[in-house]
Design a binder for these strands. Structure first.
Lengths: 204, 204
DNA sequence: TCCGTAACTTGACACGGTGTCAATTGACGG
DNA sequence: CCGTCAATTGACACCGTGTCAAGTTACGGA
């Protein structure tokens, strides 16, 4: 852990991050990361025995650098259910583009590598809990639509906010990040919030 | 094409299909497909020089066997915009579980293989056109919500109906296929359809 | 000053999967 | 009986991951 040279370890993580984030199409190889970090390929294996480990360590590193926990925690402090839903979507939506490269690499590994699959599942579980908290907040305000159980609402919100959807909308369809956030907010409201007769529920 | 022994070619396609569909976790190798088809690995390459080619040929084969074109075409005959949207979701939603295995394999290849990426993009383009047709039908009925352009509505519907979302909801969340269809219909209506004051737009 | 340790390098190699090549077999039709 | 075409067999190149062993360099402590 901290017995290793922290500089090298961190340089590896940064290199991995930058390579993945700079898209550059093809898959990022261990040797690419090593070259970018200015060390030998084997040195990478000294710090991260498996590629999957390096990838998840990179997501944790990004979390730390970007203070993701802080951002998500702050989103939970919004008082009323609706604002809390908005705040959560905003926090998560702002997070996605930052981990997108790593997420994509991890998802690509899932088919072959069980470890990678577990790691990614774990991260998605965290998102799920955020969704559940938001749904619960809405539910406690008696604003949840009657045609969805809290569980189903959580599932749906979770799917809507998935990294895959973000990628589709911003990358394939060319949406700007702010449009993505805005439309996700209104979509989530339309889907989850009880229809308040005579009042437009989708006002934003 | 038809100069090759059609039996062998078809046996390969069926084997590929069945292996992919039977999940069995790990990636399906060319040798697995060959073994299942009862031929040598090289014979597979005789018919499909690249793995990506085999995969897309398999999707086309499934399309043919399951009469996908027919089903989607029929969904376009529903008269009014709303029914047409429902019919399209039903047709597509019934299609997804059948191509899911192949889709997953193709998506896993996308990161590394440009051909696979193009092939998959092409298939998704077909879905997109279906979405666009459905949105246009709604729009022509003046039922499209004012906060979405037809283009944005198409993008959104397309993302919502993506294979990834189907997988998340049915596989990870354990939704039954019929629940998936039902909730997608109501979600699509809530998101796309103009809010008809005094009337619950989400009636289904 | 020298020893030991820990990080890193160098170069080799095994493994698994894709894709290629060449020589061979076997069946079927003209 | 001959050609042709599908399929077989076995070998091999390539690439990326992961492992191993031996050598280098720097640094800290007795």
């Amino acid at each position: 852990m901290s017995s290793n040279n922290p500089n090298t370890r961190e340089r590896i993580l940064r290199s991995c991050w930058e390579l993945l984030e700079s898209g550059e199409g093809g898959a990022v190889r261990m040797s690419d990361i090593a070259r970018k970090a200015g060390i030998s390929r084997q040195a990478v294996y000294l710090h991260f025995p498996k590629r999957a480990e390096l990838l998840i360590a990179t997501t944790h590193y990004i979390d730390e650098v970007k203070d993701v926990d802080g951002r998500l925690a702050r989103s939970r402090q919004a008082g009323r259910g609706l604002e809390r839903l908005d705040a959560f979507i905003e926090a998560w939506g702002g997070y996605v583009p930052e981990i997108h490269g790593v997420a994509k690499a991890l998802m690509a590994m899932m088919a072959n590598d069980a470890d990678a699959a577990d790691a990614w599942r774990g991260r998605m579980e965290a998102l799920r809990q955020g969704c559940q908290a938001a749904v619960d907040a809405v539910h406690n305000d008696s604003k949840l639509t009657p045609d969805l159980s809290p569980q189903q609402a959580t599932d749906l919100l979770w799917a809507i906010l998935s990294v895959g959807n973000w990628e589709l909308l911003t990358r394939e369809c060319g949406w700007r990040q702010e449009d993505y956030i805005r439309h996700m907010k209104t979509a989530a409201r339309k889907i989850l919030i009880k229809n308040n007769p005579g009042r437009n529920t989708a006002r934003i």
